[in-house]
């Protein structure tokens, strides 16, 4: 059904496995397929967690240069499509977890950054090599510093070092280094429960917006979001349980 990835849903977990020979590089076809999966997740999925991982010993080794023609006039359209795709993952109504084993490079690093959590094996490496290749590291320019601070982000994006999973964890770029991704995933899913999608989605949105919003606006946003959350069944059930316990 998909050319560049595999998709399955089981027990409330939807898994997108990037699957292209040569490191699961991001092609426009992959962007279209991830967007189609986002449609499906938004429209008909009952899953509460979305996992993104890579096949064949890599997470994602960056963008596929085969999509570019050096003799053609360059346009920005594909980069815009890719960022829109990232934003859609960032706004999915489910919790999102990136499982990294092997290379998370360039666009692969960007993809990991839009997920709520990142788990990696010690064999993983992270790098944003774009500046050394003469272009920009996508909206990692927007997201990376929020995880690691401006100083480290400048070093990682301007000098483009390969860093290990342990280093990435030390910088706050990933959440944990695990021996076994599936064991780590099960633990992460266990930690998320019980999963209240509206509360997750709104809290994540407020966090994503927190660096670009002044206090008065952030307070207004919080009150609007909190009103929505406390009007949901999940909070009303919490109140009923609390009353029962009295």
């Amino acid at each position: 059904m998909y050319e560049t990835l595999r998709f399955n849903e089981q027990d409330g977990v939807a898994t997108i496995t990037l699957n292209r020979p040569g490191g699961n590089c991001i092609s426009m076809q992959m962007v279209r397929e991830i967007s189609a999966i986002c449609d499906r997740l938004e429209d008909e999925s009952k899953s509460t967690v979305v996992v993104i991982r890579g096949a064949g010993g890599a997470f994602c080794a960056g963008i596929d240069f085969d999509d570019f023609d050096p003799n053609a006039v360059m346009d920005i359209h594909g980069f815009n499509k890719w960022e829109k795709c990232c934003t859609r993952i960032e706004r999915l109504p489910m919790s999102t977890i990136a499982l990294v084993d092997g290379a998370a490079i360039g666009g692969g690093l960007q993809l990991a950054l839009v997920c709520d959590q990142r788990l990696a094996t010690s064999a993983s490496i992270f790098q944003a090599p774009e500046v050394k290749l003469g272009f920009l590291p996508g909206m990692a320019t927007f997201r990376l510093a929020k995880y690691v601070g401006l100083g480290i982000a400048k070093r990682l994006l301007l000098t483009c070092p390969e860093i290990t999973a342990d280093e990435a964890a030390g910088y706050g770029m990933i959440d944990a280094v695990v021996d076994d991704l599936d064991v780590g995933l099960n633990q992460a899913i266990h930690n998320l429960g019980p999963n209240h999608n509206v509360a997750v989605q709104l809290t994540r949105r407020l966090l994503n917006e927190c660096y670009g919003t002044d206090y008065q606006n952030a307070l207004g946003h919080f009150l609007a979001a909190q009103h929505r959350a406390i009007s949901q069944t999940a909070f009303l059930d919490t109140l009923k349980q609390a009353k029962k316990g009295e």
Partner: peptide, 16 residues
Amino acid sequence: GKKVIDAIKYNVGITE
């Protein structure tokens, strides 16, 4: 007003 615009944004899921 600011409150109702915020409320629409966070309930309908639209952005600034």
